[in-house]
């Protein structure tokens, strides 16, 4: 018998493998992924890497410039602030407060929002139409404003601001997930799956889920970057993290008087916020593009 197995040496890539192949062929995306990996490393090991305590005040080392300045020292690599605290250590701890909390909030919002969104899309009835009206109202208010309203009720503080941002970001997930699951459920391959005798769980898990990952990645990217902005904005306004916490927005607000004497105390936390959002967005957007590229 002739060997009909012509495909034997050709490995068929699964969508996940195809996504990775597309992603890893983009240099900027890969650089951003490494940078994100570094951020995660710093996030977890910040207490071990930070050279000083974030709150350690040294009266003899006020406003020490960064190490590349003539008057700077390597011991205080990014200089010190007006209370003699090491800026590098504060930024590293701030990574946990700003980026870490933004990640935490976004993942919790993802889980809650996805659950509600999927439930609503399946039970298209009273639940979904009620939800629709509530969501429309909630989404017409910017999330930062919504967070400020929550805080005016709860009172300022890091915990309250996190709770407020969480509550403000859940509607985005519900809305996004609801819409894409609802659209997905109209597709013929879902009807075909139903005719195979699949129950709701199976339809969602095997029919819908693989096709909404792209939406989830997109929503998560946006949620993380807007959470970073909201946390630091509330910190800057004095409604979120309070001094002496080294949350990046709080660090900025404490340093605004020093713009001309010690610009590094303002520029560095600002840069940290900017770079983190930049990295998150590049990774998220490239990942989304690669997932889409996987199907054609």
């Amino acid at each position: 018998m002739p060997n009909l197995n012509v495909f034997a040496d050709e490995h068929i890539l699964s969508p996940a493998e195809q996504t990775w192949k597309h992603y890893s062929s983009q240099q900027i995306a890969m650089a951003a992924l490494w940078a994100l990996g570094l951020l995660f490393f710093l996030l977890v090991f910040a207490p071990f890497i930070a050279p000083h305590e974030p709150d350690l005040r040294q009266a003899h080392l006020l406003l020490q410039p960064p190490s590349w300045d003539d008057k700077g020292t390597v011991d205080y690599f990014l200089g010190t602030d007006d209370l003699g605290r090491d800026v590098l250590s504060r930024l590293l701890y701030g990574l946990q407060l700003t980026f870490g909390n933004a990640l935490l909030i976004s993942f919790i919002a993802l889980i809650i929002g996805t659950t509600i969104g999927i439930t609503a899309a399946i039970s298209h009835g009273l639940l979904s139409s009620t939800l629709h009206h509530i969501m429309d109202t909630a989404l017409s208010i910017p999330s930062l404003l919504l967070a400020i309203i929550f805080i005016s009720v709860l009172g300022p503080g890091l915990d309250h601001s996190l709770l407020a941002i969480l509550l403000a970001s859940i509607p985005q997930f519900i809305r996004g997930v609801y819409l894409s699951v609802y659209q997905e459920l109209q597709k013929e391959y879902i009807i075909a799956l139903k005719l195979d005798g699949a129950n709701n769980y199976r339809i969602i898990r095997y029919g819908v889920f693989p096709n909404i990952i792209e939406t989830l990645v997109n929503l998560l990217t946006r949620a993380i970057s807007s959470a970073i902005i909201d946390i630091s904005a509330l910190g800057f306004l004095g409604l979120g993290a309070q001094r002496p916490l080294s949350e990046w927005g709080t660090m900025l607000s404490g340093a605004t008087d020093l713009v001309f004497i010690a610009p590094w105390t303002v520029v560095l936390p600002g840069l940290a916020i900017l770079v983190t959002i930049f990295i998150v967005n590049i990774v998220g957007e490239s990942l989304r593009q690669s997932i889409i590229a996987g199907i054609d």
């Binding site: 597709k187 013929e188 391959y189 009807i191 075909a192 005719l195 029919g207 693989p210 096709n211």
Partner: peptide, 15 residues
Amino acid sequence: MVFQDPETSLNPRTS
């Protein structure tokens, strides 16, 4: 049932 359009009746992400 066999659907009208095979482009939409097969899930692109399942083998």
